[in-house]
Simulated assay, not measured.
Amino acid sequence: MNPATEAGNRLSKTTPWCDDKRINLYVVSVSKFLLLYGLTAGGYMVYWSYRNWASYKAETGAPIAPLLRAALWPFFILPLFEVVQNGLDRTGRCYFWQPETRGLLIMLLVMFSVLVSTLFTRPADAVYVLFTNAVLITGCCAMLVAAQRAINMLAGDPQGSVNKALSWANFAWMVAGTLLMAIVGYMEFMSQR
């Protein structure tokens, strides 16, 4: 990779825990990722983050707490993206996705979502808050798709073929997420009447 491209992909020069072997993270097809992310209103990120950090810990022995990093995923998105980019650099796989820019934008969108939900608490603001959060969730999703493609590229499975089928658990989470979104939407609609 040329120095200009590497500089555009890296914010810090931290060393990964394990330089001598390829890091395989959580491979999933982009279509499955989009479906699970969308139908759980972004809740899939907790599981996605956990699986990535648990894989990293299992392969490197790094002293991290995957469950904590999953619960607080927006704060650990930059280190995760750096792990991915370090792996791509080590394996010589080229994929230009600007991980730091994406990570910072994701953190900004999540913080903005929290601020909107916190500052606009009047019943009349409910529709505005729901619409804004839907737009922010969609924006985060767009940023995360490139990250999943980078993870798949790192594993040597650009299409995520190894994890493209939906399981019964996937269907259960999608149904639960859809029901929750419908209930929230219905309650907001009823509060406006």
Score class of each variant (00 low, 15 high):
1 M>I: 06
4 A>R: 13
6 E>I: 15
7 A>F: 03
8 G>Q: 14
10 R>V: 09
11 L>Q: 00
13 K>C: 12
13 K>H: 11
13 K>D: 08
13 K>W: 09
15 T>A: 07
16 P>A: 00
16 P>M: 04
21 K>R: 15
24 N>E: 03
25 L>F: 02
26 Y>L: 04
26 Y>Q: 03
28 V>P: 00
28 V>A: 05
29 S>T: 12
29 S>N: 02
29 S>F: 04
30 V>I: 05
30 V>S: 00
34 L>S: 13
36 L>Y: 03
36 L>R: 10
37 Y>E: 11
38 G>D: 05
38 G>Y: 05
42 G>R: 04
44 Y>I: 15
46 V>N: 06
46 V>A: 05
52 N>C: 07
56 Y>L: 10
57 K>S: 01
59 E>V: 05
59 E>Y: 00
59 E>S: 11
62 A>F: 00
63 P>G: 08
64 I>Y: 07
66 P>V: 10
68 L>A: 11
69 R>L: 04
70 A>I: 02
71 A>I: 09
73 W>P: 02
73 W>N: 00
74 P>A: 09
74 P>L: 07
75 F>V: 03
75 F>E: 05
75 F>G: 06
76 F>K: 04
77 I>C: 03
79 P>V: 05
79 P>M: 07
86 N>A: 00
87 G>K: 07
89 D>I: 08
95 Y>H: 10
96 F>V: 14
96 F>K: 05
99 P>N: 06
99 P>R: 01
99 P>K: 03
106 I>F: 04
106 I>L: 08
106 I>T: 03
107 M>C: 07
109 L>S: 03
112 F>N: 12
112 F>K: 15
113 S>I: 03
114 V>S: 14
115 L>R: 07
115 L>D: 04
115 L>F: 10
118 T>G: 10
119 L>G: 07
121 T>H: 14
122 R>M: 10
123 P>L: 02
126 A>I: 01
127 V>I: 14
130 L>C: 07
131 F>H: 12
133 N>H: 09
133 N>T: 10
138 T>C: 15
139 G>A: 15
140 C>W: 00
141 C>Q: 09
143 M>D: 05
146 A>P: 12
147 A>F: 06
149 R>V: 08
150 A>V: 08
151 I>F: 02
152 N>Q: 10
154 L>T: 06
160 G>I: 06
160 G>N: 01
161 S>I: 10
165 A>K: 02
165 A>N: 09
167 S>Q: 11
168 W>G: 15
169 A>E: 08
171 F>V: 13
175 V>H: 07
175 V>R: 08
176 A>V: 08
178 T>I: 07
180 L>C: 09
181 M>A: 11
182 A>C: 13
186 Y>F: 15
188 E>T: 04
188 E>M: 08
189 F>T: 02
191 S>W: 10
192 Q>S: 13
193 R>C: 05
193 R>A: 08
